[in-house]
Design a protein around this nucleic acid. Structure first.
Length: 692
RNA sequence: GGUCCGGUAGCUCAGUUGGUUAGAGCAGGGGACUCAUAAUCCCUUGGUCGGGGGUUCGAGUCCCUCCCGGACUACCA
């Protein structure tokens, strides 16, 4: 009996292009949807652009056009990228739509009626020049605890202290460079704690979430009272104004998941389907695919909203990990931050679809795209094993077509048909890597068959024409089974196979019965091998993308010091670091000389075993003057590599008692959270030399 | 520090409720074939299953403990 299944992938934010990290999710979801459709279920895939929030507003201002124009362009780009990766939505909407506004209003009313909303004044930093409240990341200032300068609004990167942005000393707005003022405004909160019992039960039932996620929620949230959820933002804000609270807007995370429903509504209006059959029916399954970063929005707030508003709860929330490339986080400078479009300019989307399928399981683990493995796996599995079956046998039966009756193949076809159930179960469970293994095992049985039956010899013997046709009929049927099983992953290969054998692949069940008597088209290349040079070209392109994208509008993140946006030097270094961390406030030379920077030699270095980030260094300033310094560079440097080298240290920093001992200074390093580069003076500098 | 997930052949991983001499693919070595996108096929070298204890007639599989890697989260700076 066909199931009714509603599937969503997380809504991509309208502030950036799709990249290969996003694609893990959209491909994972697309495979699952295609699988369900192939199985004959009434499965629909809905998505939309997530368009609201401060970031879009700021971007629009910077570009001097309306938010609507910004999000329209980005949505068009997103849809092109998805289409070219063969990711097929039944509807692709936008959170900035009439349908979404209406649904938000309706759900909001229910939440109000349920008595979950409370109001409170919140003190927030306000940028008087830009005329807007500042989210944490748009403020910089001095840490109230340790005095580190140029720290973000929520916590100190130097001492890790958490604070409210209003506690920052000498705060500066990243938007205008102005000094923000503390301003109180009314905010609306949802008292999630009222739903505690329900959420505890729903998350811990074992049916809706992966076990590690259920544990995580239990451990981190459900053990304590749930905090009120601040779901409003005062004007100006790009979003929907809250009807019964003029001047206030729903926070983007309120209207974003409702976007799933709004996209469904659009599809219903277009096709005549009944919305309530999808969102208010026990006969409909609802599956959300998301990344682990947005777990709690989808496993606490969202079920809470649905429950309160009287809609169906998610059947399952499938959570996946992040993408790494060659074992590391994607990096713009290393060229591994690959935009979907950049990939498409060099490589076939089938490669990535297959590779992701081969690596994905139902777990939350991160997925590594090793470029070498990528090339090897695709070439060996898809080209060498699967496509090869067709390309080595099709041309022998171009003239005759397939045999009228399926010949004896020693049970090969029947075995592969019987495997269908297990492969299907693996797809159903999102255990694609298992499905791919099972399918490749079948391919490994099919090629030896061709080898043993030598069609290339049969063809030379006029008496063997029937045998030749039979052998190729078997080989092509075995190939077709693989194409059917792979169809959710490789829709294009399935289509090509349909054309080759004049029988379109539309159903999983086609793998159970051999195809006979059809004509065979002239064989056309189905899939090119990956060439190493294309991979490298893609990486190089990505480096160029990164370099080209950043310097352009400095207005996107205006630094307090004006930047010349025209690059006039030959090196054309990108502007990311500056954008990431804008220039600090002007200081005088008197301020500067207060900081006594000295060349120092690392004479001892050891790890602090109990600390994640710290190395203990003993620095020599020469002449028997030493400093013990704890440096947060454990992740980037090995102690033995540091001993003997010269570094720059802040020699007059007030010593600070740390858990592990007294820290008597700082070692100067460039870079941010994910990297650290120690500074080394040029040849000739001696320990103790002061930097002027 | 807490929670979770891993640690099985050079690499990527399978190993079902504990049951006979621990597997696959890739890579490596040898051979064959030539239909096929230097693809394919056959043979083959690799492992005290992270270490140590324990339960058991029997443990990669269960328990304890330690070590290592990763993710999340926190603390300290």
């Amino acid at each position: 009996m066909p199931r009714r299944i509603l599937v969503t992938a997380a809504l991509p934010y309208a502030n950036g292009h799709i990249h290969i990290g996003h694609l893990v999710e959209y491909i994972q979801t697309d495979i699952w949807v295609r699988f369900q459709k192939l199985r004959g279920h009434d499965c629909r895939y809905f998505c939309a652009d997530d368009t609201h929030g401060t970031a879009i507003m700021i971007r629009a201002r910077a570009e001097g056009r309306s938010e609507e124009a910004v999000i329209a362009d980005m949505q068009a780009a997103h849809e092109r990228d998805f289409a070219d990766f063969q990711i097929e939505f039944d509807n692709y909407g936008s959170t900035h739509s009439a349908e979404n506004r209406a649904l938000c209003g309706e759900i909001w009313d229910k939440i109000r009626a349920a008595g979950l909303v409370k109001e409170a004044n919140v003190e927030q930093l306000f940028d008087p020049e830009a005329g807007t409240f500042l989210a944490d990341r748009f403020v910089r200032g001095t840490c109230p605890k340790c005095g580190a300068t140029d720290q973000p609004g929520d916590n100190c990167s130097s001492c890790g202290h958490h604070y409210s942005p209003v506690d920052l000393v000498d705060p500066v707005s990243k938007l205008s460079g102005a000094t923000p003022v503390v301003k109180s405004s009314l905010h609306l909160f949802i008292e999630l704690e009222q739903l505690h019992g329900f959420l505890a039960e729903w998350t811990q039932s074992g049916e809706h979430l992966q076990p590690e996620i259920a544990n995580y929620l239990q451990g981190h949230f459900l053990g304590d009272p749930l905090r009120d959820w601040d779901i409003s933002r005062p004007a100006p804000y790009f979003g929907f104004e809250i009807p019964d609270s003029p001047g206030n807007y729903w926070y983007v995370w309120f209207d974003a998941p409702i976007g799933y429903m709004a996209s469904t509504r659009q599809w219903c209006d277009r096709t005549g389907a009944n919305f309530d059959d999808w969102w208010k029916s026990d006969d409909c399954e609802i599956h959300h695919f998301i990344g682990k970063d947005i777990t709690y929005f989808h496993t606490l707030f969202w079920p809470g909203m649905l429950k309160t508003a009287g809609y169906s709860l998610p059947t399952k929330v499938h959570i996946h990990g992040f993408l790494t490339v060659d074992g590391e986080k994607m990096s713009k400078s290393k060229g591994t931050f690959v935009a979907a479009r950049t990939y498409l300019n060099r490589l076939d989307p089938s490669y990535l679809r297959y590779f992701y399928a081969a690596k994905l399981s139902s777990r939350v683990d991160d997925l590594d795209l090793s470029l070498k493995e990528f090339e090897a796996k695709v070439n060996t599995d898809l080209v060498g094993k699967v496509v090869n079956l067709a390309s080595r046998s099709a041309k022998f039966v171009e003239k005759t077509g397939l045999s009228a009756k399926y010949p004896d193949d020693g049970g090969l076809f029947a075995h592969a048909a019987a495997q269908g159930a297990e492969i299907a179960a693996a797809y159903e469970a999102c255990d694609y890597s298992r499905a791919m293994r099972l399918i490749m095992a079948l391919a490994d049985r099919a090629n030896p068959f061709v080898e043993e039956n030598k069609p290339w010899e049969l063809r030379k013997d006029a008496d063997q024409t029937q045998r030749l046709q039979d052998v190729c009929t078997i080989a092509l049927n075995l190939f077709r089974q693989l194409a059917i099983y792979l169809a959710p992953v490789l829709p294009k290969l399935a289509a090509q196979t349909g054309e080759l054998l004049h029988d379109e692949i539309t159903s999983w069940d086609q793998a159970a019965a051999p195809l006979v008597g059809t004509p065979v088209a002239k064989f056309k290349h189905m899939l090119k091998r990956i060439e190493e040079k294309d991979l490298y070209a893609m990486i190089d392109d990505s480096k160029e993308d990164a370099a080209a994208a950043t310097p352009a509008p400095a207005s996107e993140a205006p630094a307090s010091g004006a930047m010349d946006v025209t690059i006039t030097d030959a090196y054309a270094d990108g502007g990311e670091p500056l954008a990431e961390e804008p220039l600090a406030e002007e200081c005088t030379i008197d301020d500067f000389v207060k900081v006594d920077l000295r060349v120092a030699r690392v004479v001892e270095a050891s790890e602090v075993p109990e600390a994640n980030k710290l190395l203990r260094l003993r620095l020599s300033l020469g002449g028997g003057v030493y400093r013990q310094v704890f440096a947060g560079i454990k992740k980037f440097y090995k102690p033995e590599d540091l001993v003997g080298r010269l570094v720059v240290c802040v020699a007059n920093l007030k010593p600070r008692q740390m858990k592990f001992g007294l820290s008597e200074g700082m070692v100067v390093a460039a870079g941010g959270k994910d990297a650290a580069y120690l500074l080394t003076p040029d040849e000739g500098a001696k320990p103790g030399d002061r930097l002027h």
